[in-house]
Design a protein around this nucleic acid. Structure first.
Lengths: 336, 336
DNA sequence: TTGAAAGCGATACCAA
DNA sequence: TTGGTATCGCTTTCAA
């Protein structure tokens, strides 16, 4: 592959000149520009980004760390970062495979070795302190879907607690009185907070959920099916069901309908996340919109802001996002 | 950030030695290893991948070019490549934004500038010749979801024609006699071949599809809904419907049921691709499985093979994949 | 407006 | 087993 030297030699100029036309340098004669440009085409020259990164000390690379790409939620996250990347003329470097703190750490290390200018990290397993240390070390690091007080301005997160409350209010407004919940069996923040918010809000109006009407399961379609079976098996009745995420909600609906319950006329079901799935299910799922893609874009932009020499505008306080209720077909007024 | 020189200086050895322990070099004393390792930790040293890439002339980077990450189909593709990447200790560089030949070309150029060792490219807009030229220029380039005869060994593709035939055979075996089709309005290979295969197979048993019972639409949920409306509006009756992809199929089912037709008892519906959606829809969608993820892994591995100095084994002739029928709930025996 | 040369951070060859 | 050093491809002063 042709190098800058080849171009310089063939064009009969110095490498400095070639470099100048390559970067639209300030002082180059039209003649040189034309000559060099022509030779670059002839030789099919393509500048070596690695060499460039080495000398300029910036890689124009945006790194993302997510568990996987299969989950549409994370795919959207990556897509958001990607959008900013192409908008800013940067490239996307992706590191997946978050199973443990160990692998999360590895993924981040890879991005550091690549000298990513900015990185958007989704980490659930790494400790607060580790992340804080990392953030201090890597100027362009931004956390998404996680809130750590000490580095609050570098966390873009969703208020899950408020989400739970919004869910409760919606169902309450539909005059429901008997509630059930399906949550994730994984004891991380998100499910815990969503459930807590839901319960808190109900409590404030004097309503309690019976323990038997709270089920925990795998946060998948099947998990939702099974959880709903258990709910039904409890013998307790309910007319409104708040579910941890859309996949579980769809699974739950499936079980409910198989058992003769109509959604929403017999039972209202409310999901969370508003992934693509929710628009495709029948009945179309009412849910809480989690604007990951925009949040990812914001995170990427904050990262870029952080590494730019520009005076940081201190107005990006607004990293907290509130989920938005999306009423579709799976929730309605209590009928019985 | 600490460099190899810093480490060498602090450890009181030469950079050569540091480099050796970094790469598990062949001849290093235990003492040096320990000393250097300790200093590396102290200084929080992280080798610069760009510098490395420059001198070794290999970037340990796997590039992927896809239209976007939102479409689960492409997310799976990327995930497949990612899997190979981490397995081989490489990184994933992602380029999206395929709208035109122009942007496809740009995306590929970016990967070239980054000196990606191997790249898996999904291109629909670039011409055969352009791709052939590119392939000759970039040794590690592999095409996915496209077949070009001149570079057949570097194309990993699905036999859409055969897919259409399999679909026809399935519906025929269920004793259907009156068929309808919904295809994509975009005149690229995939929809054309799927439809052709379907029609060819029917024809071979003496069955024809009326023109009015072939609809073209946007390959989305809404597109499927609209296409099904048009089908219904034609007044012609049919008991089996073959749809271009799963999203459209789910949209079509939605319309059919809204109009009082039961799926599959009144009308059998068969999709294509077997994306996540198809398992979540009700009734669960019968479809043809498109093993993108595995195909992407194969493509990545072929690329790696191509750039390795190892004698290329010529047995990867098997780049053609046949979709597999997945019977779920949306197809059944003709009842009327 | 142009060119010569130093240097970015690593690897690898050649001596010692 | 170690160290010195040329080199990878490019950018960026500093002089001319």
């Amino acid at each position: 592959m042709a190098t800058i030297k080849d171009v310089a030699r063939v064009a009969g100029v110095s490498v400095a000149s070639v470099s100048r036309v390559l970067n639209n340098g300030p002082k180059v004669s039209k003649a040189t520009i034309e000559k060099v440009t022509k030779v670059m085409q002839e030789l099919n020259y393509s500048p070596n980004a690695n060499a460039r990164a080495l000398v300029t000390q910036k890689s124009t690379t945006l790194g993302v760390v997510i568990p996987n790409l299969i989950d549409p939620f994370f795919a959207s996250l990556a897509q958001g970062v990607e959008q900013v990347a192409r908008q800013k003329n940067m490239q996307l470097l992706l590191s997946t495979g978050l199973v443990s703190a160990e692998t999360e750490r590895q993924a981040i290390n890879l991005l550091i070795e690549r000298r990513c200018d900015v990185m958007v990290v989704h980490s659930k397993k790494l400790s607060d302190q580790t992340l804080i240390d990392l953030a201090n070390k890597v100027p362009g690091l931004v956390l998404i879907d996680r809130y750590i007080e000490q580095i609050a301005q570098r966390c873009v997160w969703l208020d899950n607690l408020e989400g739970g409350k919004i869910a409760a209010r919606h169902l309450l407004a539909l005059e429901h009185k008997n509630f059930a919940c399906i949550s994730s069996k994984y004891q991380i923040d998100d499910p815990l907070l969503r459930l807590k918010g839901f319960q808190d809000e109900l409590k404030s109006t004097g309503v309690m959920i019976e323990t038997k009407l709270i089920e925990f399961g795998e946060p998948t379609l099947q998990g939702g099916e099974i959880a709903a079976q258990n709910l039904l098996a409890s013998g307790k009745s309910f007319s409104a069901l708040f579910v941890y995420n859309d996949a579980m909600a769809i699974g739950a609906i499936s079980t409910l309908e198989d058992n003769g319950f109509k959604v929403p006329s017999d039972i209202s079901v409310l999901g969370f996340d508003d992934v693509l799935l929710s628009r495709y299910s029948r009945p179309k799922l009412s849910t809480l919109n989690y604007p990951v893609e925009q949040m990812a874009m914001q995170a990427a932009n904050i990262g870029i802001e952080l590494v730019s020499k520009q005076p940081t505008n201190p107005d990006n306080k607004n990293c907290k996002h509130i989920p938005r209720l999306v009423k579709r077909e799976s929730t309605s007024y209590r009928s019985n």
